[in-house]
Amino acid sequence: MTAAATGAALRRFVFDDELTIVTAAEHRDRLLAFLRDGSGVRVDLSGITDLDTAGLQVLLLARDEGVRRHLPVEFVEPSPAVADVLALTRLEL
């Protein structure tokens, strides 16, 4: 988790359900739309009830896209499902 100095200036993106192959396309488009607006985003992971490889790829894509566009992308409050996957893959967001 990157500690963001920018604080409350970031817009908030909330997941409220599973992030899996079923919803991956939809969430990707929403996330990308945020980034296209030219502002950073704080992604609240606390609502993710289930995360699979497809979902993980969406999160990684958002992270990379942020780097590419020089926009801050923060991931906060990982739910247990997210923490589990990150531990499994030894990844940090």
């Binding site: 192959i21 991956a24 396309a25 990707r28 990308l32 980034l35 497809a54 790829q57 969406v58 990684l60 894509l61 990379d64 896209e65 590419r68």
Partner: peptide, 10 residues
């Protein structure tokens, strides 16, 4: 991972 636009979420 490809660029955002080319990525197939599935």
């Amino acid at each position: 991972l490809p660029d955002a636009e080319e990525m197939d979420p599935e």
